[in-house]
Amino acid sequence: MKQLALILLMTLGSGILSTNAQCCNPKMAELANKQTTASEQADQTDVKAYYFHATRRCATCQAVEKVTKEALKEYYGEQVKFQSINREKDSKNPLLEKYKVSGQTLLIVKGDQVENLTNTAFLNARTKPEKLKAKLKATIDSMN
């Protein structure tokens, strides 16, 4: 019984020391703050394109995704991240709530700036893709 108590005490003591060393070490705390700040800054400076859609998609829905991907790659290479999100399969995705998405939606986001290009996308993706591409470029360029 004494051995068990001693083992528990030693385990508890080493855990406290370990936690204290990580928590109170100024260099570790500074490094952690720098990493957090860098990722927060990246989120604020990176432009992202989100396309929310349903499982069953019409030709226009598919064209919106295709033309958007093409435009982003053509104009920005890998600089602007594109994410296609199936609202039905990924119904718990926090972006749905964050951007109050309930239907097919194309958003361009940089930090707190959010541009909804859904109407332009659905009006032009199939019949005038160059118009959608131009709108995407103008929107993203205005955010940079």
Rank of each mutant, 00 (worst) to 15 (best):
E65L: 08
Q41I: 14
C61K: 02
M10L: 12
M143F: 12
E130D: 14
Q35F: 07
Q113Y: 06
A32W: 00
G15P: 10
Y75M: 03
D43R: 04
L6G: 14
K100T: 11
V101M: 07
K100G: 10
D46C: 05
K131E: 03
V109K: 00
S39N: 12
T37L: 09
E78T: 05
H53K: 03
L106E: 01
A32S: 05
K81G: 12
D141F: 04
T55D: 10
A63W: 06
Y75A: 07
A125D: 01
A32V: 00
C58D: 01
I16W: 03
G13E: 03
N119W: 00
Q44H: 05
K135E: 11
K135V: 08
T55L: 09
K48M: 05
C61Y: 01
V80H: 04
H53M: 09
N124C: 07
Q44M: 14
Q79C: 03
T55N: 09
Y99I: 09
Q44Y: 03
L95V: 14
N144W: 04
L31M: 12
E40R: 13
E130P: 07
K92D: 10
E30F: 04
H53P: 04
M1P: 05
Q79D: 10
D112N: 15
K133H: 01
M10W: 08
R56H: 07
G103C: 13
A121E: 00
I85P: 01
T60I: 06
Q113S: 13
I7Y: 08
A54I: 01
G103L: 14
K48T: 05
Q79S: 12
